[in-house]
Computed example of a mutant assay.
Amino acid sequence: MTGNIYISGQIGTFDGTTGVTLADVVAQVKKQPKATAYNVHINSEGGLVDVGFDIYHYLKSLRKPLTTIGSGIVASIATVLFMAGSKRQLRENTPFMIHLPWGGSMGTADELEQFAAQLRQVEQKMVGFYTKALNVQKEAILPLLKNETWLTTAQLSGLGFTTSAQPFKAVAKAYLNTNNPMRGTFNERDRHWMESLFTRTLGRFKNAHVFNKVVQDATGAEIDFTELPDDGVIEVGATATVDGTPAEGEYLLPDGTTYIFEAGALTEIIEPDDAAAPAEESAALRAENKALKRQITHIKNEVLALKKQVGSRYSVEGKKVAARRPAQAERTTGLKQYLQSKPRK
């Protein structure tokens, strides 16, 4: 059985945004105890260096065949996670970028020098990782890291990042602070700088529709909404493909949502609560049916008891008729009284 691990969004929690942590990945693995291999699906712009390496080492410690599959974007520390796979694949139009870690600090000259020294150590760790993982010399990878290189299909295949050639490109970010070179924090100036960098860089691919919406179902199949931007909302009527062909049939997502397609068009979205409703309604109906059956059985028993009682008291037909006569007489008397109570005209 091949399990699936999903790493989507920023790596680590910082700046008020919850990201993917080591605990999240461990929890996914524990839910798949029968898995003998894993597909690791990565869609991340990067994040905290220490969290990224923690996840990388954990994946390697599983000692099971890993296939890393990049989709959407693989950048910065996410490229380290990508290298955990013995098989490494990128889906078409997935940006991929490597760079040196960066960060900012405020303080005295001594504190700034200390931070710079820590940052150098992290740089050396990153360079050492890539040279070993790719089996290249430092001189081959360091210039690419310094220049924040967006790698082409040929470069990724030639350097050994991927084990199967497919079209793509790339992006990244990583953060540090003065207390720990592996942890990240940045000020407002850094934020504006980073946002402007991404705006300028992503602008190159705006017309190429690189960042279209892609989601993965519970089996790892990628549903590609080619006409939706990456931040677009999936609604009924959207069109999508799976493995390059129009999506068809039902696709169950990891969160329990079900997408139903016909000839590539999304015709229905069944939310988890909606999907559970029929089962809940069915259970309620079954319980109600049981209660009704018990009531019917009880009524039948009462009817049988009355029949037995009537049979024992009125065993002769004449007595039965006589038994009904008083009631008829009472009804007639009641009618007369009613008529008499009406005002006469």
Rank of each mutant, 00 (worst) to 15 (best):
247 A>H: 02
276 A>N: 08
298 H>R: 14
78 A>R: 07
226 T>Q: 09
182 M>H: 07
52 G>K: 01
269 I>L: 04
330 E>A: 12
2 T>H: 08
49 V>Y: 11
128 G>F: 12
167 P>I: 11
196 S>M: 12
88 R>W: 06
64 K>F: 05
154 A>P: 00
273 D>M: 09
84 A>G: 04
309 Q>N: 06
192 H>E: 14
141 I>Y: 03
163 T>M: 06
66 L>G: 01
304 L>G: 08
88 R>V: 07
128 G>E: 12
261 F>C: 03
258 T>I: 15
50 D>C: 02
244 G>T: 09
129 F>E: 09
253 L>I: 05
95 P>H: 02
256 G>T: 10
172 A>E: 13
321 V>F: 04
119 L>V: 09
21 T>G: 02
203 G>V: 09
310 V>D: 09
7 I>A: 08
341 S>T: 09
100 L>T: 03
234 I>V: 15
246 P>S: 02
322 A>E: 14
278 P>L: 08
54 D>M: 06
49 V>L: 08
51 V>S: 03
303 V>P: 00
161 F>S: 01
137 Q>V: 02
143 P>C: 12
276 A>G: 04
192 H>L: 14
102 W>I: 13
53 F>I: 06
107 G>H: 02
33 P>S: 07
149 T>L: 10
339 L>A: 10
54 D>Y: 02
17 T>C: 02
1 M>G: 13
344 R>Y: 08
190 D>R: 02
185 T>K: 10
150 W>G: 07
63 R>D: 14
264 G>D: 05
308 K>C: 02
334 G>K: 14
236 V>Q: 13
94 T>M: 07
283 A>R: 03
158 G>D: 15
53 F>W: 10
157 S>K: 12
74 V>L: 12
47 G>N: 06
225 F>M: 07
279 A>N: 10
57 H>D: 12
217 D>V: 06
117 A>Q: 14
58 Y>F: 15
309 Q>C: 01
258 T>P: 00
284 A>H: 09
52 G>Y: 01
342 K>P: 00
127 V>M: 09
189 R>I: 13
71 S>D: 14
166 Q>W: 03
310 V>W: 05
327 A>V: 06
221 A>K: 10
23 A>S: 09
261 F>N: 01
335 L>K: 11
282 S>P: 00
101 P>T: 04
20 V>M: 08
233 V>A: 15
25 V>R: 00
49 V>H: 04
336 K>T: 10
294 R>A: 15
134 L>R: 01
298 H>S: 15
74 V>F: 10
27 A>W: 01
318 G>F: 07
202 L>K: 08
246 P>L: 03
226 T>M: 11
318 G>N: 07
45 E>K: 08
72 G>Q: 07
80 V>F: 13
201 T>C: 01
158 G>Q: 14
98 I>R: 00
94 T>C: 09
277 A>E: 13
335 L>P: 01
50 D>L: 05
77 I>V: 15
189 R>K: 10
194 M>Q: 13
215 V>L: 11
56 Y>D: 06
286 R>I: 11
269 I>S: 02
281 E>S: 11
170 A>N: 10
227 E>A: 14
295 Q>S: 15
344 R>H: 07
52 G>N: 04
204 R>P: 00
140 A>Q: 14
262 E>G: 03
318 G>S: 12
342 K>T: 12
225 F>V: 08
303 V>N: 11
